[in-house]
Amino acid sequence: MIVAQRKPLAEIIKAVEPFEKILVLGCGECVTVCMAGGDKEARETALALSLARRKAGKPVQVKSHTVERQCEFEYLEAARKLVEEADVVVSLACGVGVQTMNMHFAEKQTLPGLNTTFMGYPAEQGVWLENCLGCGNCVLEETMGICPIARCSKSMLNGPCGGSQNGKCEVSKDLDCAWHLIVERMLKFNKLDDLMKIRPPKDWSTSHHGGPRKMIREDVKL
């Protein structure tokens, strides 16, 4: 899923300073699951904004609402009335949702209420880990299902660097070394040959480095 985290409240308060009618808009997908921008968080954020403005002596009208999926135009219509009534929208969706909002309601500004952090998974209650960078050419079949692009701090393709110690990445003792995990799994599955194989430099042109990506599927186009 896409993992995100709410921006510090002070930052949101500052961003909406010039506005009188605010809509906080949550999203029912990933950000609901990672507890950053679902209905509950939208309500809480709306309440917090309203209190802060009252305290500052500049009361303001804040409403909250949540759409099923902010990243697709068809779900945004459900919020049209509220959006039109507001001076500004604070989106609690990921960066994708913020942008579809700005495209769909081009006459209105939608501001980001979250920092979109990464594509990842909940490792345990309250802990999320990044594990895919969307590189456009998946190598997981070569690396025992562990992504060296997203999970190695240096995106290495051929084994762990010299900073890997005790299973941890040199960048932080709180971070597993992805290549340590890959090597262990390769040895466990008797894949020494795969371990010794030299994988050529990655073609980054399929990733963001090739420019913003566009995908066209003729088979499903209308």
């Binding site: 084994g159 762990p160 660097c161 010299g162 900073g163 890997s164 110690q165 005790n166 299973g167 070394c177 340590h180 090597v183 262990e184 040895l187 020494l192 371990l195 010794m196």
Partner: peptide, 9 residues
């Protein structure tokens, strides 16, 4: 560095 058994490979 670790894993030690890999280092020679």
């Amino acid at each position: 560095a670790d894993p030690f058994e890999y280092r020679v490979y």
